[in-house]
Write a protein that binds this DNA or RNA. Structure first.
Length: 155
DNA sequence: GCCAACGTTGGC
DNA sequence: GCCAACGTTGGC
């Protein structure tokens, strides 16, 4: 029996936004090229885990909505695509390097919870996202942090 | 556009 | 295995 985990996944909305996910309903979370982030998808995520969808490099920057892990990990097909900027010459079909999970749309928040708002919350002061220099594009979120963010979104 | 923080690469 | 050089992320 595995308890549910919570995650935060970053995307630049110019590349893929919460609106794109709302339209498509589900999407493979491709193009991650960081081992730590990949390992979360490959080893730690379970179908049904809840995901905070974060808009980085955006106006406003912040948490834009909710999603869910929708599949087991599978090879990221962009690593095999010679035309893709994410092509990886060291990856083979037999031994893929990069994996992704599907992410399913749940909801778009009525407003983006921007960084300044998140920083105001005492209960989020230890959140990985808010730590200086934290660039990891997939991060674990505690149940307490997740609950706090849901409450903020409902306000 | 700047730049701090971090990750990766590759020579040794 | 060390570490300098380089590339990327992402807030501002």
């Amino acid at each position: 029996m595995k308890t549910k985990r919570y995650w935060l996944m970053k995307s630049e909305p110019s590349a893929y936004s919460i609106d794109d996910l709302a339209r498509e309903k589900a999407s493979p979370w491709e193009c991650v090229r960081n081992y730590q982030a990949r390992n979360f998808m490959l080893h730690d995520m379970k179908v049904g885990d809840e995901v905070l969808f974060y808009h980085s490099n955006a106006e406003p920057t912040g948490i834009a909505g909710l999603a869910k892990v929708g599949s087991e990990p599978k090879p990221d097909k962009t690593q095999f695509d010679r035309k893709s900027e994410y092509f990886d010459p060291k990856a083979t079909k037999e031994s893929p390097r990069w994996h992704c999970v599907d992410v399913n749309f749940v909801e778009k928040f009525p407003r983006v919870l921007d960084l300044s708002l998140l920083r105001e919350q005492k209960s989020l002061k230890d959140m990985m996202l808010l730590r200086k220099g934290s660039r990891l594009s997939i991060q674990p979120v505690t149940a307490e942090e997740f609950a706090c963010i849901l409450k903020l979104a409902a306000k």
